[in-house]
Amino acid sequence: MRNLLIFINRYSAFLLFLLFESIALSILVINNTYQRSITISSANELVGDAYYRLNSVEDYLSLKSTNDSLSSENAALRNQLQTSFLNTRLDTHRVYSPINEQRYLYLSAQVINNSIHQKNNYITVNKGFVDGIKKGMGVISPSGVVGIVVNVSPRFSIVQSLLHKDTRISAMIERNKSFGSLIWGDQIDSRKAVLKDIPSHVKIKTGDKIVTSGFSLFPSGIPIGKITRFGVKGGGSFLDIDVFLATNFGTLEYVYIVTDKMKKEQESLESNLKND
């Protein structure tokens, strides 16, 4: 205590200066919009930089699991190659057909900020409109569906994750092609979602795979999850299906942003219909 008093006495000039100066600076920053905006923006820059550095360290730590997922994805893609199928077609000349035209393009992006414990979760990825990302594009990961792009800056985009109360994804049961919409039901568990609007006469069983229907944003057949439990709620005509999500949002690192090249064409055709 005595030492403290001696210390204060010795440096009293400087301590008093610090006291008065901090009062003056806080008055300055609180009351002047210009100085405040600069303070806030440089604080943001600092935080963004810190996130970026932290992320570059985390990348190394999870290099092994990332490699594993990439190599397994490579294998899956190799399975889909033309060369890995036996050619049984008899016709020899090519016919122009929409089947041969590429509809979906995939752009790889890295997750630089992520949340799973909020009521509404968002993911930030390191690709923006410079790279051709637009609002409303779908986002998938190697293991399944992730979400929808909601906000784009030159170099970054914000993805509204599946773990968000407003996210609805058109999904179907792979076995019998009946479709409904997927929402994040309880908004607590990051691995569980709810599939709605499946009529109760449809025969399903636990363990059935849920995939995207291909009606919007995503190509059809992207995995979403597996049925863990189902039942009819209160005599309704629709089933209530609990889904265990294929994507682990907690360890998300690389995602693909899906560009639908024919989205405009489809939308304009469908909007014609509504005008009639």
């Binding site: 200066f17 008065f20 100066e21 009062i23 003056a24 600076l25 806080s26 300055l28 609180i30």
Partner: peptide, 18 residues
């Protein structure tokens, strides 16, 4: 300009002392 001249004046006080 709340705080602007105050900050400068208080630093002037410190400089004067030293």
């Amino acid at each position: 300009t709340p705080g602007l001249h105050t900050t400068a004046c208080v630093s002037l006080g410190l400089f004067r002392i030293y």
